[in-house]
Write a protein that binds this DNA or RNA. Structure first.
Lengths: 123, 123
DNA sequence: CAGCATCCCGGGGGATACTG
DNA sequence: CAGTATCCCCCGGGATGCTG
């Protein structure tokens, strides 16, 4: 179950992969080998700072491999490791759920606040 | 696929359910109806502030229902809605992955830094 | 018991500028 | 091109205290 041994273990991993960008990067790398700039372009809102940091973490955790080619115009390619690729299916599961339910979630959020009696407790 | 329509839609939902506490709370509520204090105790690290806020968001998004009993010792019960319950399976998928791979992730993290040639680029 | 208000700090993370 | 370093602001989120 999700909470595992008191939630500790799972929390650790969840904290790691559930940040703002990790899943997006992993998902993007599902396409295959990509260079830094490619990733940067394919992931709209990300800053190169966060891209770098997140990639470093992913590399450190063994989910992504980094290959630098010592060429004059530097080229660095990022690719999912087998472990990283194994994250794709469950990530797809979550993404699937997200896509299936986003509309009712947003509808519910709209409705909220119109509540009879709900004091609309500030932001 | 994960990135959906350019990543926008999915990002929205992911940002919502991937925060530090949401999945833990949903997981805990999988047990059934729980009162505020019960939740507070079952989720070790959480502050009542974050518990309240996260519950409010979950309620707002229609994943959790809140029932307040107008009794003298106030009693409020939280329960997963059908939508909320539908999140359990994919969440379990992710949790399963986390449990299966946490060891190699932590091992990989240990190994990192010992890299031959890796300039140990500061923090 | 449930939970809102307030204070306050750390750090997540964007923008910008510089380097190999 | 692929980063790194710096500045700096914002807000996540813990601690505490008060109310119904």
């Amino acid at each position: 179950m999700i909470r595992g041994d008191g939630g500790r273990t799972i929390r650790a991993v969840l904290d790691r992969i559930c940040d703002k960008w990790t899943l997006l990067i992993v998902a993007t790398l599902d396409e295959g080998c990509l260079r830094f700039t490619d990733l940067h372009r394919q992931i709209p809102g990300i800053s190169q700072r966060m891209l770098t940091l997140t990639l470093r973490n992913l590399e450190r955790d063994g989910l992504v491999s980094r290959t630098a080619y010592a060429e004059v115009p530097p080229r660095v390619e990022y690719e999912l490791t087998p472990t990283g690729r194994s994250l794709i299916p469950p990530a797809l599961g979550l993404a699937g759920w997200a896509m299936e339910h986003i509309e009712e979630i947003e509808a519910s959020r709209e409705a909220y606040g119109e509540r009879p009696g709900a004091g609309a407790a500030g932001a």
